[in-house]
Nucleic acid binder design. Sequence first.
DNA 1: GACGGGTATGGAATCGTTTCCAAAGCCTGG
DNA 2: CCAGGCTTTGGAAACGATTCCATACCCGTC
Lengths: 355, 355
Amino acid sequence: MTASRRAATIKDVARRAGVGVATVSRVLSGSGAVSETTRERVLRAARELEYRPSALGRSLKTQRTGTIGLVVPEVTDPFCAELAAGVLACARTLGEHVLLDASHDDPAREVEIIDRLVEQRVDGVIAVPSGEPAGWRAAVRAGVAVVFADRAVAGLPEIPAVLADDAAGVRSAVEYLAGLGHRRIGLLGTTTTGQPYRGDPGVREEAFRATLADRGLTPDEDLLVRARPGRDSAFATAAGLFQRRPDMTAVLAATHLLGEAAVLVARELDLRIPGDVSIAMVDDVPWAELCDPPLTAVARPGRDMGYRACEVLLRDPARRERGRPVVLPTELLIRGSCGPPAGMPGAAPRSARTR
Amino acid sequence: MTASRRAATIKDVARRAGVGVATVSRVLSGSGAVSETTRERVLRAARELEYRPSALGRSLKTQRTGTIGLVVPEVTDPFCAELAAGVLACARTLGEHVLLDASHDDPAREVEIIDRLVEQRVDGVIAVPSGEPAGWRAAVRAGVAVVFADRAVAGLPEIPAVLADDAAGVRSAVEYLAGLGHRRIGLLGTTTTGQPYRGDPGVREEAFRATLADRGLTPDEDLLVRARPGRDSAFATAAGLFQRRPDMTAVLAATHLLGEAAVLVARELDLRIPGDVSIAMVDDVPWAELCDPPLTAVARPGRDMGYRACEVLLRDPARRERGRPVVLPTELLIRGSCGPPAGMPGAAPRSARTR
DNA sequence: GACGGGTATGGAATCGTTTCCAAAGCCTGG
DNA sequence: CCAGGCTTTGGAAACGATTCCATACCCGTC
């Protein structure tokens, strides 16, 4: 009995209230002058019919969908999830919907996603880009506003980005390790499948090198390895490094996946943390605290980045024009996974360094 | 130079190709007969104008948006993220878009989300419901197909659900613990903010009780505590239980958040795992393996559940009608966090671990 | 040579809104 | 009493697609 054959339209409401469709629209959108009595008649009719205005009709006419696209490499990645949460939070306060998709860091898939978002006529897109500029250029040409988060794409200065200060984060971690007395510090870095793009990964590696150089330590290229995306490669790469260089006393993992791999490999090789090897990583994830010992990590404000990216996209067109990246600070969270190197006299973490 | 003032429409393409709009539509949608020469002319015109058909126009006419809604309590929750990944994967194969939102387990917010999804005229909704039936009833009345995942709502038998076999999962964990010799087993359970709904939580608690009873153990109500959602309550609840009952030799955490709390509290109280207390939890999350010792957990197939829910929603209307829940199996992953109870004769409290 | 059957094609209606514009009603002041 | 200015209202034209229906054409057959 209640199940109406077809959803009520504005015409149905108009007929029932005995007014024109224009009046109904005015009442419901709140714009324009309507007499109190008609307003009430319309509202009652709408209520009785359980009328829900169709976003399709409205969007078609107004040329705004009230929807933004969000493209992340992988929803299950904790950092991406935080970022998404931030975007969702901001979008909600602005009354926007979020269309989500995962690129799996595959440029081809990314291009396809962009295409579909353009078809959907989203008002804008927030993306953790995989690196290929062509698709994004096409999106901009099609009139979609784009904001990058977490990574920028080389050759697209016109697209604004919200980034974490990864360079400073890596620097603080390396300085911390060097300050503890470490001389042979490894870096578990990342590489993409071969696209010549420089965003995140390059920055971290570069900061690693620069910090060591600043301290008068020449970076040992053999201690600097790169894993491809994915757990398997992370584990294999970490295992390779640990086995090849037993003299390494500390390692910095450039991602949480690499941090995970480092912990697992160390455990497998029966290396104590931080007794035999100190481990730090970029990205603070829930398990960092559950680890034994808890892992020292560079926290990056994923949620804030998402929120900020959404703000830039929707309410800061000025900044969008200028296109200078927003850079948010990182924080080194010192936990128990780093100590002085094994050969160091005086194993107590805070003991005076004999130089 | 390239930035066209306005996106090209089907009319622009028709004009440029010198044909009618109907022909353009036929060519692009692949339906209907078109001569080879016109087809090519149309395709070329479309390419030259960088034409992208508007999903709005199409959806309005066809009454299908090609979009489904996904409502989860919290995107950053690893289980929800897995579920979302599954939904995304299935949606992609079926060419559907996914509109995401987070309810934070707040019924009021959930109702609001539902409302907005109905306005968007989504083809269907997949939800991990918070328990309030009214909003979902309204959605169904509005003609939206709904499938629940992970939880069902009491009083809505007409809405199909895809669930994990939590009862069997809890049972296997409890039997495992009892089999190791434990007699005083605690349960860290959950409760909602007070809504009288029974879904998940009730099932787990009930299975816990039933399994103990089956083994001739009377469940000790004092060992059965319930936390409200959120990290703080989880931690407080776990701390309370551990301190009140030092004689408890094993504990089962009903969620990964409670598992986390249990590990943290045990560490704080200097209880060795599994020497002093055995810990197992429901939900296998990445950190379970990184823990020291790795945590025994009941794995629930989040991704599969999401994939399955999407399939039921979009390609299995028959099952949707019948409305019987799909139940997917769980698996007990035995790791190192459980051993015989401390007082057990023959069990070396210090080192020996049955593996 | 007319007819029937098929293929290609374009016009126009339709989906559900918003919004422009004109009209209708009512009041006020000259 | 009427001109002119409000307020309130409804009709109709978009927005951009799909699709029904009619038409035009071609060809083979009787």
